[in-house]
Simulated assay, not measured.
Amino acid sequence: MGRATKVVLAYSGGVDTSVCIPYLKQEWGVEEVITLAADLGQGDELDPIRQKALDSGASVSLVRDVTQEFVTEYAFPAIQANALYENRYPLSTALARPLIARLLVEAAEEYGADAVAHGCTGKGNDQVRFDVSIAALNPQLKVLAPAREWGMSREETIAYGERFGIPAPVKKKSPYSIDRNLLGRSIEAGPLEDPWVEPLEEIYVLTKPVSATPDEPGYVEISFEHGIPVSLDGQALAPVELVTRLGEIAGLHGYGRIDMLENRLVGIKSREIYEVPALLTLIHAHREVESLTLTADVTHYKRGIEETYAQLVYNGLWYSPLKAALDGFVQKTQERVSGTVRLKFFKGNLSIVGRKSAFSLYDEDMATYGSGDQFDHKAAEGFIYVWGLPTRVWSQKNRS
């Protein structure tokens, strides 16, 4: 682990990260703790969090609003890559970790800290994402993880904090572990640890239950330029506003819930619930623009790239050489991925009902079965003969 004198701590305002402040000073001999809270569009009021850090013993309490960067530099590239971990989870939480890691490294360099710290436990994915990202950005920095080593139960952690003036939670703590940012929410633990248990409606915030959704479908048109969403229903919107507004529309119709058994990097399975109305919508819409504008071979090859890309992000390798190489491939494919997709939301479902692009490779004269058909049907026989020749030869040689 190594010891440090000045540490920048990733801070959320919760019990664990608050207790990390006196713990680092009292148990590990850290002289100065600087906290850093990232505003990722989670909707929390961060001024009280800033003050709580100071009250808990931090010498400096930083709050960084990086919502815009989060969308444009992390979410949008993942959308261009159609990144879905295990073909389901759009990485809403995982995408935030490399950004927070970058902020920690920048703050450490700004304040002359010799270490950074986080409140992750030893059983989750986030510890890997933080540690590896920090090492990639500044391998000289020590990374401290008190909660991974202190061995205290939650009750013991609260009691430890009270010794140093950190108040215990005033209300009964929810049994769930929840992480939220502009891209969505992740919910785990409590009753959800039993994969047979149906999630209670109370855990959802961003999506309406089907019983409370409108009885008429809702339509929206999303336009993309070079694989980046730029407008809703013809109105150009800034990135944060576009994600926010689309999330409200999709959530109103109950779309964006995921309930999955997920394979964590540390080797265990975890039951995870996600609410990702805007992000999931944008990935499906983006794929439709690609279906019009990419050739078949690029589309098929890119599917494998997308799976690898999602695994890299999930596994904390955002800043790895392979991820950088895949970024180059993805960006090249997006040069003509511009167009508009029309979607229909209804009772928790999303349907793609229209798509158009100035770069469309779809030729109606070739595809039609009507009188305007321009396809040369006579050419099919020769094509089939050549295409099937290896199979025909193999069959002839191997007939018993």
Results as ranks from 00 to 15, higher is better:
Glu31Tyr: 02
Asp55Glu: 15
Glu288Ile: 03
Gly13Phe: 07
Tyr309Pro: 00
Tyr309Leu: 07
Tyr11Glu: 08
Gly165Leu: 02
Arg185Thr: 10
Ala10Gln: 08
Pro239Arg: 04
Glu156Cys: 03
Ala38Cys: 08
Pro229Asp: 12
Pro195His: 03
Val8Tyr: 01
Leu95Trp: 03
Lys323Tyr: 09
Ala78Asn: 05
Leu282Cys: 05
Gly57Thr: 04
Glu248Val: 09
Asn263Lys: 10
Val63Tyr: 12
Cys20Ser: 04
Tyr23Met: 03
Pro191Val: 02
Ala38Phe: 13
Glu162Asn: 05
Leu144Cys: 01
Pro239Asp: 11
Leu144Thr: 00
Tyr219Ala: 07
Gly124Ile: 07
Gln127Thr: 11
Ser395Trp: 15
Tyr204Asp: 13
Gly247Asn: 12
Ala58Gln: 02
Glu225Thr: 06
Gly251Arg: 06
Ser92His: 15
Ala135Trp: 15
Leu24Val: 02
Tyr309Lys: 05
Ser153Pro: 00
Val210Thr: 14
Gly29His: 09
Glu27Met: 13
Ser291Lys: 05
Val116Thr: 03
Lys347Gly: 04
Phe164Lys: 04
Tyr274Thr: 01
Lys123Cys: 10
Asp16Pro: 01
Cys20Glu: 06
Lys172Trp: 06
Leu317Lys: 09
Leu292Lys: 06
Asp131Lys: 15
Lys142Leu: 11
Leu279Ile: 11
Glu188Cys: 05
Ala38Tyr: 01
Ala325Gly: 12
Pro22Arg: 00
Lys6Thr: 01
Gly304Gln: 09
Ala94Gln: 07
Phe76Ile: 13
Asp215Leu: 09
Ala238Asn: 11
Tyr74Cys: 05
Asp126Leu: 12
Glu109Gly: 02
Pro77Cys: 08
Gly122Leu: 10
Ala78Gly: 02
Phe130Val: 02
Ala324His: 15
Tyr85Gly: 00
Asn398His: 13
Ala367Cys: 08
Glu149His: 05
Lys172Leu: 11
Asp365Lys: 09
Glu307Tyr: 06
Leu62Asn: 02
Gln26Glu: 15
Glu155Ser: 01
Val15Thr: 10
Asp194Pro: 01
Gly370Pro: 01
Ala189Tyr: 13
Met152Leu: 08
Asp327Ile: 06
Glu45Lys: 12
Tyr74Trp: 12
Ser12Val: 01
Ala78Glu: 11
Asp126Thr: 09
Tyr160Lys: 01
Asp126Ser: 04
Asp55Gln: 07
Ala108Tyr: 03
Tyr89Gly: 00
Pro209Asn: 04
Ala117Tyr: 02
Gln26Met: 11
Thr207His: 07
Leu312Glu: 12
Ile268Asn: 11
Asp327Pro: 06
Thr333Pro: 02
His253Leu: 15
Thr293Leu: 04
Arg97Gln: 10
Ala113Gly: 00
Asn125Lys: 08
Val330Gly: 00
Ala53Pro: 00
Gly234Ala: 05
Ala285Gln: 06
Val386Met: 12
Gly184Asp: 06
Gly267Tyr: 07
Met366Arg: 11
Leu54Tyr: 07
Ser177Glu: 14
Asp39Tyr: 00
Gln374Glu: 14
Val197Ser: 08
Arg154Glu: 14
Glu110Phe: 06
Leu103Met: 09
Trp387Tyr: 14
Leu317Gln: 12
Glu290His: 05
Ile79Trp: 07
Leu252Ala: 14
Ile49Met: 08
Thr207Arg: 09
His118Met: 13
Ser360Gln: 05
Leu200Glu: 14
Met366Asp: 12
Val170Gln: 14
Leu91Asn: 04
Pro390Thr: 01
Val143Asp: 03
